[in-house]
Nucleic acid binder design. Structure first.
Ligand SMILES: [Mn+2]
Ligand SMILES: [Mn+2]
Ligand SMILES: [Zn+2]
Ligand SMILES: [Zn+2]
Lengths: 147, 147
DNA sequence: GACTAGATGAGAATGAATTGCAATATCAAG
DNA sequence: CTTGATATTGCAATTCATTCTCATCTAGTC
């Protein structure tokens, strides 16, 4: 139940990161960052726009898209391109985590798997590459419940 | 240098699979399947349309999209939704393979990794899911070549 | 050869994302 | 605290991939 609309140590950090990148700290950018910071799920650009308007009314969707691009290049957020649906976004911690998408209802479950991440690094390294970003999406179906 | 436009044991197999699924075997569907069958890369729908028109002139792009959906549901092909670009398609063998996308030039390299696939199954199973499909995309940068 | 459900072609429509441009706001400098 | 340079924004129009509508066509069946 933390208030997503107020400054906090976490969001203040965002401001610093923007400045360090030579970008201006605008109310729109902070509102979007706060929205992502308080999101438990993986919202789409338009969902982010809707929530961000709660703290800073009338943020245009053009600004949302532009800001999301900027933040992604900055490495602050991650974009998930799922099939047949608009892209979804999340703040990134520095973990390489994967997503299970329930093909039944679209639920997204996150998971971390050290072995998998290690494999990604190794596979890329073998081919002379250095990992920039990994996307793992496991589309899966709920198994018939036990008993 | 095999001719992609002629029937072959492989493409005859496609016809059988279509019939078994209760679908009609049309020249358009076969042309698209042959195109994918001879593709070394991961073409987009429009690229597929262009090549398929070589064997069956004037296949509409609507038909290409419709056919690709049908073939995907049938499990004959796989759709890859990469970021910031139209979807790409490939025939699927029954292997769960991943893709390394060179962030420099967009090159797509395929890889198979038994350990990784096993992890996918295990992770899903742990959460009570059964894998339908896995997408692994490793965006990576070429490492400075040795000497 | 005729019938019929399924498939196609042409183009309009949709929806996500991007862009041009004039107006606005950030922030460094004075 | 002002000012000015310029990054950023809002709005609307635009692009682009993909989907849809519907009249026409065709594969498969008898
Ligand atoms: Mn969501
Ligand atoms: Mn290609
Ligand atoms: Zn996530
Ligand atoms: Zn592939």
């Amino acid at each position: 139940m933390t208030d997503a609309l107020e400054p906090s140590p976490k969001t203040d950090g965002f401001a610093v990161m923007l400045r360090e990148a030579g970008l201006r700290v605008t109310s729109q950018r902070m509102a979007i960052l706060r929205t992502l910071s308080s999101a438990e799920d993986h919202p789409t650009a338009e969902e982010i726009a809707g929530k961000a308007r709660g703290s800073d009314a009338s943020i245009s969707h053009a600004t949302v898209y532009r800001t999301l691009s900027v933040l992604e290049e900055l490495g602050l957020i991650r974009k998930l391109s799922l099939e047949n649906s608009p892209a979804r976004y999340e703040l990134c911690g520095d973990d390489d985590h994967g997503h299970i998408v329930d093909v039944g209802d679209g639920t997204i479950i996150e998971f971390e798997d050290e072995a998998m991440s290690a494999r990604h690094q190794a596979i890329a390294a073998d081919l002379g590459y250095e990992v920039v970003r990994c996307v793992t999406i496991i589309e899966a179906r709920k198994k018939p419940g036990p008993v």
